[in-house]
Protein backbone atom coordinates (compact mmCIF):
# COMPACT_ATOMS: atom_id res chain seq x y z
CA UNK A 1 0.00 0.00 0.00
CA UNK A 2 1.43 3.35 -1.02
CA UNK A 3 0.69 6.33 1.21
CA UNK A 4 -1.11 9.30 -0.31
CA UNK A 5 -0.06 12.89 -0.18
CA UNK A 6 -2.57 15.52 0.88
CA UNK A 7 -5.60 15.77 -1.43
CA UNK A 8 -4.20 13.11 -3.76
CA UNK A 9 -7.07 11.34 -5.46
CA UNK A 10 -8.29 9.84 -8.68
CA UNK A 11 -11.77 11.19 -8.11
CA UNK A 12 -13.04 13.25 -11.01
CA UNK A 13 -16.07 14.83 -9.31
CA UNK A 14 -16.12 18.08 -7.33
CA UNK A 15 -15.16 16.42 -4.03
CA UNK A 16 -13.75 19.71 -2.71
CA UNK A 17 -17.09 21.50 -2.84
CA UNK A 18 -18.58 20.09 0.38
CA UNK A 19 -15.55 20.73 2.62
CA UNK A 20 -15.22 24.18 1.08
CA UNK A 21 -18.85 25.04 1.89
CA UNK A 22 -18.40 23.72 5.44
CA UNK A 23 -15.21 25.75 5.80
CA UNK A 24 -16.96 28.91 4.65
CA UNK A 25 -20.11 28.28 6.72
CA UNK A 26 -18.38 27.46 9.98
CA UNK A 27 -15.75 30.20 9.54
CA UNK A 28 -18.49 32.77 8.90
CA UNK A 29 -20.31 31.71 12.05
CA UNK A 30 -17.16 31.73 14.18
CA UNK A 31 -16.17 35.20 12.93
CA UNK A 32 -19.64 36.68 13.33
CA UNK A 33 -20.33 35.13 16.76
CA UNK A 34 -16.94 36.31 18.06
CA UNK A 35 -17.58 39.82 16.75
CA UNK A 36 -21.09 39.84 18.18
CA UNK A 37 -19.99 38.55 21.60
CA UNK A 38 -17.31 41.23 21.65
CA UNK A 39 -19.85 44.06 21.21
CA UNK A 40 -21.57 43.85 24.60
CA UNK A 41 -24.35 46.15 23.39
CA UNK A 42 -27.50 46.12 21.23
CA UNK A 43 -28.47 42.63 22.27
CA UNK A 44 -31.83 43.64 23.72
CA UNK A 45 -34.90 45.39 22.42
CA UNK A 46 -38.14 46.25 24.22
CA UNK A 47 -39.11 49.50 22.54
CA UNK A 48 -37.93 51.51 25.52
CA UNK A 49 -40.22 49.87 28.07
CA UNK A 50 -38.84 48.53 31.36
CA UNK A 51 -41.64 46.07 32.13
CA UNK A 52 -41.93 42.34 31.52
CA UNK A 53 -41.04 41.30 27.98
CA UNK A 54 -38.61 42.10 25.19
CA UNK A 55 -36.28 40.53 22.69
CA UNK A 56 -32.99 39.09 23.99
CA UNK A 57 -30.31 37.85 21.60
CA UNK A 58 -29.63 34.11 22.14
CA UNK A 59 -25.87 34.81 22.12
CA UNK A 60 -26.37 36.76 25.35
CA UNK A 61 -28.80 34.47 27.12
CA UNK A 62 -28.81 34.05 30.05
CA UNK A 63 -27.45 37.50 30.96
CA UNK A 64 -25.62 36.51 34.14
CA UNK A 65 -24.40 40.07 34.75
CA UNK A 66 -25.43 43.24 32.98
CA UNK A 67 -23.43 46.42 32.68
CA UNK A 68 -25.80 49.34 33.02
CA UNK A 69 -25.81 52.44 30.87
CA UNK A 70 -24.86 50.64 27.65
CA UNK A 71 -27.21 51.05 24.66
CA UNK A 72 -29.27 48.01 23.72
CA UNK A 73 -28.93 46.18 27.05
CA UNK A 74 -31.81 44.86 29.17
CA UNK A 75 -33.00 46.45 32.41
CA UNK A 76 -30.91 45.30 35.38
CA UNK A 77 -33.70 43.10 36.74
CA UNK A 78 -33.02 40.73 33.83
CA UNK A 79 -29.53 39.98 35.17
CA UNK A 80 -29.34 36.67 37.03
CA UNK A 81 -26.67 37.88 39.41
CA UNK A 82 -26.94 41.67 39.23
CA UNK A 83 -24.67 44.35 37.76
CA UNK A 84 -21.36 43.60 36.09
CA UNK A 85 -19.01 42.72 38.98
CA UNK A 86 -15.74 44.51 39.74
CA UNK A 87 -13.64 41.34 39.48
CA UNK A 88 -14.71 40.91 35.86
CA UNK A 89 -13.40 44.40 35.08
CA UNK A 90 -9.96 43.03 35.84
CA UNK A 91 -10.01 41.24 32.47
CA UNK A 92 -9.08 44.46 30.74
CA UNK A 93 -9.11 43.23 27.18
CA UNK A 94 -12.55 41.66 27.40
CA UNK A 95 -15.55 43.94 27.03
CA UNK A 96 -18.35 43.80 29.63
CA UNK A 97 -20.31 41.33 27.55
CA UNK A 98 -22.46 38.59 29.13
CA UNK A 99 -21.94 36.54 25.95
CA UNK A 100 -18.38 35.68 26.99
CA UNK A 101 -19.64 34.00 30.12
CA UNK A 102 -22.05 31.60 28.47
CA UNK A 103 -21.05 31.04 24.82
CA UNK A 104 -18.51 28.41 25.82
CA UNK A 105 -21.35 26.02 26.68
CA UNK A 106 -23.20 25.88 23.35
CA UNK A 107 -19.93 26.17 21.47
CA UNK A 108 -18.38 23.23 23.33
CA UNK A 109 -21.53 21.22 22.60
CA UNK A 110 -21.17 21.90 18.89
CA UNK A 111 -17.41 21.39 18.98
CA UNK A 112 -17.75 17.88 20.41
CA UNK A 113 -20.89 17.00 18.40
CA UNK A 114 -20.45 13.87 16.30
CA UNK A 115 -21.78 15.58 13.19
CA UNK A 116 -19.60 18.68 13.52
CA UNK A 117 -16.59 16.49 14.21
CA UNK A 118 -17.08 14.91 10.79
CA UNK A 119 -17.61 18.34 9.24
CA UNK A 120 -14.57 20.11 10.66
CA UNK A 121 -12.22 17.14 10.58
CA UNK A 122 -12.87 17.08 6.86
CA UNK A 123 -12.97 20.83 6.20
CA UNK A 124 -10.42 22.21 8.66
CA UNK A 125 -7.98 19.40 9.43
CA UNK A 126 -8.05 17.43 6.19
CA UNK A 127 -8.41 14.14 7.99
CA UNK A 128 -9.46 13.34 5.28
CA UNK A 129 -10.83 16.28 3.21
CA UNK A 130 -13.22 13.89 1.42
CA UNK A 131 -13.67 10.17 0.94
CA UNK A 132 -10.87 8.47 -1.03
CA UNK A 133 -8.95 11.76 -1.04
CA UNK A 134 -5.53 11.82 0.60
CA UNK A 135 -5.51 12.99 4.23
CA UNK A 136 -2.85 15.38 5.51
CA UNK A 137 0.10 13.03 6.16
CA UNK A 138 0.78 12.50 9.86
CA UNK A 139 3.57 10.36 11.17
CA UNK A 140 1.68 9.42 14.27
CA UNK A 141 -2.04 9.64 13.64
CA UNK A 142 -3.90 9.08 16.92
CA UNK A 143 -7.49 9.80 15.97
CA UNK A 144 -9.41 10.57 19.13
CA UNK A 145 -7.06 8.75 21.45
CA UNK A 146 -4.58 11.60 21.99
CA UNK A 147 -5.50 15.17 22.83
CA UNK A 148 -8.88 14.70 21.19
CA UNK A 149 -9.87 12.15 23.81
CA UNK A 150 -11.64 15.18 25.29
CA UNK A 151 -14.36 14.64 22.66
CA UNK A 152 -15.61 11.84 24.89
CA UNK A 153 -17.08 14.45 27.24
CA UNK A 154 -19.72 15.33 24.65
CA UNK A 155 -22.53 14.13 26.89
CA UNK A 156 -21.57 16.67 29.57
CA UNK A 157 -21.65 19.53 27.09
CA UNK A 158 -25.06 18.20 26.08
CA UNK A 159 -26.39 18.56 29.62
CA UNK A 160 -25.52 22.28 29.53
CA UNK A 161 -27.00 22.61 26.04
CA UNK A 162 -30.30 21.18 27.28
CA UNK A 163 -30.40 23.69 30.13
CA UNK A 164 -29.79 26.51 27.65
CA UNK A 165 -32.67 25.32 25.47
CA UNK A 166 -35.03 25.76 28.43
CA UNK A 167 -33.60 29.22 29.03
CA UNK A 168 -34.06 30.16 25.37
CA UNK A 169 -37.61 28.80 25.51
CA UNK A 170 -38.25 31.21 28.40
CA UNK A 171 -36.73 34.00 26.27
CA UNK A 172 -39.07 33.05 23.42
CA UNK A 173 -42.02 33.31 25.81
CA UNK A 174 -40.67 36.66 27.03
CA UNK A 175 -40.59 37.92 23.46
CA UNK A 176 -44.39 37.63 23.26
CA UNK A 177 -44.70 40.35 25.86
CA UNK A 178 -43.87 44.04 25.90
CA UNK A 179 -44.17 46.00 29.11
CA UNK A 180 -46.34 43.18 30.47
CA UNK A 181 -48.73 43.20 27.49
CA UNK A 182 -49.13 40.04 25.40
CA UNK A 183 -48.60 40.43 21.65
CA UNK A 184 -46.69 39.17 18.67
CA UNK A 185 -43.85 40.67 16.69
CA UNK A 186 -41.62 39.38 13.94
CA UNK A 187 -38.94 39.08 16.62
CA UNK A 188 -41.26 36.86 18.68
CA UNK A 189 -41.53 34.44 15.78
CA UNK A 190 -37.77 34.57 15.15
CA UNK A 191 -37.01 33.87 18.82
CA UNK A 192 -39.66 31.12 18.99
CA UNK A 193 -38.22 29.23 16.01
CA UNK A 194 -34.77 29.38 17.61
CA UNK A 195 -35.34 26.98 20.56
CA UNK A 196 -37.45 24.70 18.36
CA UNK A 197 -34.55 24.22 15.93
CA UNK A 198 -32.03 24.00 18.75
CA UNK A 199 -34.23 21.42 20.47
CA UNK A 200 -34.51 19.34 17.29
CA UNK A 201 -30.72 19.45 17.01
CA UNK A 202 -29.93 18.80 20.68
CA UNK A 203 -32.52 16.09 21.28
CA UNK A 204 -31.34 14.27 18.14
CA UNK A 205 -27.79 14.18 19.50
CA UNK A 206 -26.02 10.82 19.40
CA UNK A 207 -25.17 11.01 23.11
CA UNK A 208 -28.80 11.76 23.97
CA UNK A 209 -29.86 8.81 21.80
CA UNK A 210 -27.48 6.59 23.72
CA UNK A 211 -28.69 7.78 27.11
CA UNK A 212 -32.38 7.50 26.18
CA UNK A 213 -32.20 3.91 24.99
CA UNK A 214 -29.12 3.11 22.93
CA UNK A 215 -27.22 1.78 25.91
CA UNK A 216 -29.65 -1.07 26.54
CA UNK A 217 -29.47 -4.34 24.66
CA UNK A 218 -32.96 -5.64 25.26
CA UNK A 219 -35.79 -3.29 24.36
CA UNK A 220 -38.48 -5.75 25.30
CA UNK A 221 -37.25 -7.09 28.61
CA UNK A 222 -38.98 -4.75 31.05
CA UNK A 223 -41.56 -1.98 31.23
CA UNK A 224 -38.89 0.69 31.55
CA UNK A 225 -36.95 -0.65 28.56
CA UNK A 226 -40.12 -0.61 26.45
CA UNK A 227 -40.67 3.05 27.38
CA UNK A 228 -37.02 3.81 26.62
CA UNK A 229 -37.39 2.03 23.27
CA UNK A 230 -40.18 4.43 22.29
CA UNK A 231 -37.99 7.36 23.30
CA UNK A 232 -35.05 5.88 21.43
CA UNK A 233 -37.15 5.54 18.28
CA UNK A 234 -38.15 9.21 18.44
CA UNK A 235 -34.60 10.36 19.12
CA UNK A 236 -33.41 8.11 16.28
CA UNK A 237 -35.83 9.91 13.97
CA UNK A 238 -34.34 13.27 14.95
CA UNK A 239 -30.85 11.77 14.82
CA UNK A 240 -31.40 10.83 11.18
CA UNK A 241 -31.79 14.56 10.46
CA UNK A 242 -29.02 15.64 12.81
CA UNK A 243 -26.90 17.24 10.08
CA UNK A 244 -29.84 19.25 8.77
CA UNK A 245 -30.83 20.51 12.21
CA UNK A 246 -27.17 21.23 13.05
CA UNK A 247 -26.98 23.68 10.16
CA UNK A 248 -30.50 25.09 10.47
CA UNK A 249 -30.11 25.77 14.19
CA UNK A 250 -26.63 27.25 13.66
CA UNK A 251 -27.93 29.60 11.00
CA UNK A 252 -31.03 30.53 12.97
CA UNK A 253 -29.26 31.30 16.23
CA UNK A 254 -26.96 33.65 14.28
CA UNK A 255 -29.90 35.15 12.41
CA UNK A 256 -31.77 35.70 15.70
CA UNK A 257 -28.82 37.69 17.01
CA UNK A 258 -28.62 39.70 13.78
CA UNK A 259 -32.35 40.46 13.94
CA UNK A 260 -32.34 41.59 17.58
CA UNK A 261 -29.19 43.63 16.96
CA UNK A 262 -30.60 45.43 13.92
CA UNK A 263 -33.90 46.17 15.67
CA UNK A 264 -32.09 47.33 18.79
CA UNK A 265 -29.81 49.59 16.75
CA UNK A 266 -32.81 51.03 14.95
CA UNK A 267 -31.70 49.85 11.52
CA UNK A 268 -34.95 47.98 11.01
CA UNK A 269 -38.38 48.36 12.58
CA UNK A 270 -39.96 45.33 14.20
CA UNK A 271 -43.49 44.72 12.96
CA UNK A 272 -45.56 43.93 16.02
CA UNK A 273 -48.95 44.22 17.64
CA UNK A 274 -47.73 46.52 20.42
CA UNK A 275 -47.17 49.46 18.08
CA UNK A 276 -43.74 50.25 19.54
Amino acid sequence: MSKSSFAETFRTDRWWLEPLLVLIGLSAFIIYSTWSAWQGQYYWWSGGSEGFGGYLSPFYSPPLFIKEGIPGTPPIWHAWFGPWPDWLYDFKYLPASPAWLILIFPLSFRFTCYYYRKAYYRAFTGAPPACAVGAIPRNNYKGETGLLVIQNLHRYTMYFAIVIIFILTYDAMLSFFNDGRFGVGVGSIVLLINPILLGAYTFGCHSFRHLVGGSINCFSCSKSSRVRYKGWRFVSFLNGKHQMFAWLSLFWVGFSDVYVRLVSMGFITDLNTWGV
Partner: peptide, 15 residues
Amino acid sequence: FGTGMCNITKCCTDV
Protein backbone atom coordinates in the same frame (compact mmCIF):
# COMPACT_ATOMS: atom_id res chain seq x y z
CA PHE B 1 -9.92 -2.77 18.12
CA GLY B 2 -9.36 0.98 18.45
CA THR B 3 -12.72 2.80 18.42
CA GLY B 4 -10.78 5.89 19.45
CA MET B 5 -8.86 5.82 16.16
CA CYS B 6 -12.09 6.44 14.25
CA ASN B 7 -12.77 10.15 13.86
CA ILE B 8 -16.23 9.48 12.43
CA THR B 9 -15.74 11.18 9.09
CA LYS B 10 -18.39 8.79 7.78
CA CYS B 11 -16.71 7.69 4.56
CA CYS B 12 -17.53 4.09 5.45
CA THR B 13 -21.23 4.99 5.49
CA ASP B 14 -20.92 6.95 2.25
CA VAL B 15 -19.55 3.99 0.26
